[in-house]
């Protein structure tokens, strides 16, 4: 079943001349993990805001085409509907703390309070997402007194507790240290394994290759390439348009020139693929 359906979406922010999205069509199946890559200013965040309904509701501006999430056209959707169908988590963990609460537990319950979820239902739901995101032991801490990785997991939990149908992640680890990055990707992997529909913008191509069912390359508000990670992440056009390749792909590409990589083998996108490929290349005479 298609859960996110964008048809010929073109969008311009208010007070700007250029379109941030230009004729973008995107369909996401329930349970699919779609990754979006692209250089700065390609329209990746704009795409996230569009799927989450912040465009046009929050940003105003001119939106053409149709955006349908879980069967509801986003222009017609109320805030409650939008929040219940799409959860949004973005880069800066600090800015995602509501400021309304003094403890992590209550911070997570904030969304439930706003949705009018009964008080009796809250503890179980909050505890469940805390366990899922591995922050149970932080329940009584102040959300401001946490590390970046912990804060980002609180942000994830605060969204997941509202049980959205789609999770939109806008570079969730770009402001985290390696430890925090691993913690957050751990949670994301968990969610993917549980069958969550995910749209994730991410620069770290190794992680994209590891998670995504499908990759979309955006440039100047348009879709440049779309397909499986193996197809898109080794597409030579990515280099031409300064997206870059992952280190595994780059290494194999160099290796091919030195005849270290089997010429008939496609370039790798993960560590495993790179390892098998190089082993094979080295065994050849």
């Amino acid at each position: 079943m298609v859960i996110v359906d964008l048809q010929h979406v073109t969008y311009r922010y208010p007070m700007t001349e250029q379109s941030a999205l230009e004729d973008v069509s995107l369909h996401i199946e329930e349970g699919e993990f779609v990754a979006v890559i692209g250089p700065n200013g390609a329209g990746k965040s704009t795409l996230c805001y569009t799927v989450a309904g912040f465009i046009p509701h929050f940003f105003k501006g001119e939106l053409e085409g149709t955006v349908e999430v879980a069967g509801v056209e986003s222009r017609q959707a109320s805030l409650e509907q939008r929040v219940r169908s799409v959860g949004l988590v973005f880069q800066n963990p600090f800015n995602q703390i509501s400021g309304a609460k003094y403890t992590v537990f209550e911070e997570i319950a904030f969304g439930l309070e706003n949705l009018g979820v009964s008080r009796a239902e809250m503890p179980a739901r909050v505890e469940q997402v805390m366990a899922l995101t591995g922050i149970t032991d932080l329940a009584e801490r102040s959300p401001y007194a946490l590390s970046g990785g912990q804060q980002q997991r609180v942000a994830l939990a605060s969204i997941l507790v509202m049980e959205p149908k789609v999770l939109v992640l806008d570079e969730p680890t770009s402001q985290l240290d390696p430890v925090g990055t691993r913690e957050v990707f751990g949670v994301i992997r968990n969610m993917a394994l549980r069958g969550m529909t995910v749209l994730m913008v991410e620069h770290k191509l190794e992680w994209v290759a590891a998670f995504a069912d499908r990759v979309i390359a955006l440039e100047n508000g348009r879709i440049l390439a779309e397909g499986t990670p193996a197809e898109v992440l080794t597409d030579e056009r990515l280099l031409e348009h300064h997206f870059g390749f992952s280190r595994y792909t780059l290494a194999a590409r160099e290796g091919r020139k030195e005849a270290l990589w089997p010429p008939d083998r496609r370039l790798p996108v993960t560590l495993d693929e790179a390892e098998t490929g190089f082993r094979e290349g080295l065994r050849r005479p």
Partner: peptide, 23 residues
């Protein structure tokens, strides 16, 4: 930071119009 923070609380239904509850 105001814009991002506004998006963050909206993502948690801050300006929802229905009745709210309190933990």
């Amino acid at each position: 930071e105001v814009e991002e923070r506004a998006i963050a609380i909206e993502a948690r239904a801050f300006s929802a119009t229905g009745p709210k509850t309190s933990y």
